[in-house]
Design a protein around this nucleic acid. Structure first.
Length: 574
RNA sequence: GGGCCUGUAGCCUAGCCUGGAUUGGGCGGCAGUCUCCUAAGCUGCAGAUCGCGGGUUCGAAUCCCGCCAGGUCCGCCA
């Protein structure tokens, strides 16, 4: 058990037994009081009616009766609260000791022995990833890293839509459009080269019914499992998918498995889903097509009909999604999906259908709001997009300018390029992950490329400062005397380091990746204040200097570990 | 027409699930700070009817109801 957790447990159980003496059985929930008022607080207001005393009086009694313990330096009763002050020396000694023992796994939680599948990105492979969609892989990959740290076995999955209209349009375009008709692609990557075929094919389909029906034929044949058609589509999207993977790899994202939608048609599990759904009392027929009436499940709107079989007997995307999730439910203990908010209704409908099929392991879904441009929503079809690859380049280039501005002459060209790489990519990931997923984001270059304040360079810089001190130190053993680390800035920093396990736990259980970003910012900030107040190498008292050096080392490890949760790497100098 | 999400200083954002003590940060603005471990830092100042109106409560940014604004969805599309 980590330090703060142990301390919290100690306080709650001591409070519980104190209250038991007053014949009060209650759940003890501790709060974090405002600064300077303590480390944990217990509000007594709800006890007042039960104990027939004023909250202030109860707080005083609890405070004076509270047993002495190493954890607690001081207890205050104030305005109906019992405020507990952790003993900074005790906390420092336990926390630093734990960091030194655990090193890169400090903060990681015990092995849960549970498996979670996290599905993310799952973009149609018809063109390059754009910034609107970039939120998906970044949230997904961060969740993956968080769940691993929280002790889960994690598999990342990309659900590959290889049967849909989008890939059929792409395939048609590649076979019927003369490349000379198209504008020159901005990049050599396959995803950038092929997207123009998709865009033009999409336009033609809308104005020409013959083309529309040719594309529909492709969709139909592939859904029926026609091997030649499936192969043709596969050949069309495969290079695009490869391009998408390369883009993701640039921002440190790889996926474990790609599950093609066609798998569930081929193995006939979709047919089984259809048969089972038809058996349910919610199933109705309309002109040869079948739907579930979801009105009684809280689905409201113009139409509560959830169609799962067309009148020609073929299935729909959502039907296959049900088969996919039914299969997935048996592959792991926990399922997490990252989806755009436009999929909210469909996802709900799929879950209802799964419940009707007696599937109990339903996916937990993290929805994110769209990233729009000042001109409006991004759209591959309309060509109104900022591509992820372009944003990556721009971030790295801008980071390079910043490094050059500050360190030209001091660092070699290749070193500056390396730093720019880490800063640029880190900025991109951090800027997207630091905002809670359900909040709308309007993409503005000046915000995305702002490297000051609450941005990743601030954190990387703190890490680099720590590395710089460590590099200059002659001492190699990490020894410390916790009783010498009593400066307020030292105590603040140590408390911050002690929080990491709690942050991982709560961020993970609530699927709130932005909490990690916040924690990092606060930790870097605490380190910068320590840096200002507490000289390390220049400190004359040898043991104090050594202890501070150990604190610097611990901070470096924590910053590194937490940045890694976001898929961000920190340079040793910048 | 209906469902879901969002609304916190000029701009961006945390806190909302699980109500609690002066709503934390950042950008931008103003004023300081490098004979001292990298000033991508640090310090101070100014700036908020927590969208609006009710309700519950000893206590509401947080819970409930209504309204307003923005996003998103309501296809035998994916």
């Amino acid at each position: 058990m980590y330090a703060l957790e142990e301390c919290q447990h100690h306080i709650s159980s001591a409070l519980r037994s104190l209250l038991k003496k007053h014949k009060v059985e209650t759940e003890v929930r501790l709060e974090i009081p405002p600064q300077e008022m303590g480390d944990f607080a217990f509000p007594c207001f709800s006890l007042a009616p039960v104990m027939k005393q004023s909250p202030a009086r109860i707080a005083e009694e609890l405070a004076s009766a509270f047993p002495k313990h190493d954890w607690i330096a001081r207890i205050d009763a104030k305005a109906g609260y019992v405020n507990f002050f952790i003993d900074p020396t005790y906390l420092a000694s336990i926390t630093l000791q734990t960091v030194l023992e655990r090193k890169e796994t400090y903060g990681y939680l015990p092995e849960e022995k549970k498996k979670v599948i996290i599905e993310h990105t799952s973009a149609n492979p018809n063109g390059p990833l754009h910034v609107g969609r970039a939120r998906n892989p970044i949230i997904g990959d961060t969740l993956i890293r968080m769940f691993k740290a929280a002790g889960y076995t994690v598999e990342s999955q990309f659900y590959l839509d290889d049967l849909g209209k989008q890939v059929a349009i792409l395939a048609w375009g590649l076979h019927h459009i003369d490349p000379s008709e198209l504008p020159k692609p901005s990049r050599q990557k396959a995803d950038h080269q092929k997207v123009a075929f998709y865009q033009l094919a999409n336009e033609r389909m809308k104005s020409d019914d013959a083309i529309a029906s040719q594309i529909n034929d492709i969709v139909k044949l592939s859904e029926q499992g026609d091997q030649a058609t499936i192969d043709m589509i596969h050949a069309a999207y495969q290079p695009v998918l490869q391009g998408i993977k390369e883009s993701l790899a640039r921002i440190h994202i790889t996926l474990d498995t790609f599950i093609p939608e066609s798998m569930f048609v081929r193995n006939e599990s979709v047919d089984a889903v259809v048969r089972a759904l038809k058996q349910t009392p919610y199933c109705h027929e309309e002109e040869g097509a079948f739907y579930l009436d979801m009105a009684s499940f809280g689905i409201a709107g113009r139409n509560t009909k959830f169609f799962f079989v067309r009148n020609d007997g073929t299935t729909l995307y959502a039907t296959r999604d049900i088969a996919y999730h039914q299969w997935k439910a048996h592959q792991a203990d926990l399922l997490v999906n990252v989806l755009g908010e436009d999929h909210k209704l469909e996802s709900r409908q799929v879950s209802i259908a799964l419940e009707l099929l007696k599937v109990t392991n339903l996916p937990q879904v993290v929805f994110y709001a769209f990233v729009s441009l000042p001109e409006g929503k991004m759209s591959t079809r309309k060509g109104r997009v900022v591509y992820l690859d372009d944003l990556i380049d721009e971030c790295i280039e801008r980071a390079y300018q910043e490094v050059k501005k500050r360190r030209a002459g001091e660092l070699s060209e290749s070193k500056m390029r390396d730093i720019a790489q880490l800063v640029g990519i880190g900025s991109l990931r951090y800027n997207i992950i630091k905002v809670q997923p359900e909040k709308d984001i309007q993409f503005k270059w000046e915000d995305a490329l702002n490297f000051e304040g609450n941005a990743v360079p601030f954190i990387q810089y703190a890490h680099a400062r720590a590395c710089s001190i460590l590099a200059k130190a002659t001492q190699t053993h990490h020894q410390f005397d916790a009783s010498l680390l009593t400066h307020p800035s030292e105590t603040m920093l140590i408390k911050q380091l002690a929080r990491l396990p709690l942050v991982i736990d709560s961020a993970c259980s609530g699927c709130r990746p932005h909490a990690i970003a916040n924690y990092l910012y606060e930790t870097a900030s605490a380190f910068n204040q320590f840096y200002r107040d507490c000289p390390v190498l220049a400190e004359e008292h040898a043991m104090r200097s050594a202890s501070r050096l150990t604190l610097v080392y611990a901070t470096k490890l924590v910053l590194w570990t937490a940045l890694d949760l976001l898929g961000v790497t920190a340079p040793e100098e910048m």
